[in-house]
Each structure stands twice: as structure tokens, then as C-alpha cells.
Amino acid sequence: MRITCPLCGTRDRREFTWQGDALAIHRPARDAGPEAWDNYIHLRENPAGKTRDLWYHDPCGTWAVAERDTVTHAVHSTTLVTEVPR
């Protein structure tokens, strides 16, 4: 599997570390209520197909959101975490 670091270009998967669902960067507001916080902290989808997750490019220290497919292992796109609308 190869992943494109938004800064370094396409690199081998061994240079990256998986950092969980990209939901993590969409933190609910402080007063959003217990249900929203419960969802944010504990509930994750487990899709067979398209998924969005966070990857850390170890040697250059970049966080990226990767859209990929858990069935085909295709990586469709990667975006710098700092450029994802929040």
C-alpha cells in the first residue's frame, strides 16, 4: 500500500502510522451535550468500503486525512489536517 503525504509525495506505507478515525479532528463544542461527546469519544463506524482516517508521516511529522477503501486498499486522496475545514 502506498500513501501520498501532502508534502513529500507518494511514499511507502511503512513510513506512516495509522492514528485512528478522522472523526477525531471534528471535536464537538464544549456545551454540545453528553450524547455528542459520547459519540465523539466512543462510537466509530466500521465500514467495508470508503473510510476516512488519520495518518502520521513519521519522518516528516505531517498529519494527513486519507480517504481510502478498506475493501480494495485503494487510497483515493490525502489532505493536510490543517487544510481540512472544521
Partner: peptide
């Protein structure tokens, strides 16, 4: 220049 690995070691 590339930030990458030399075998298992982070390198520039």
C-alpha cells in the same frame, strides 16, 4: 531532499 528512512532509521 527527503525525510525518509534508512532501513528502519528516520533520516534526511
Amino acid at each position: 531532499t527527503a525525510r525518509t528512512f534508512v532501513n528502519h532509521m528516520a533520516a534526511s
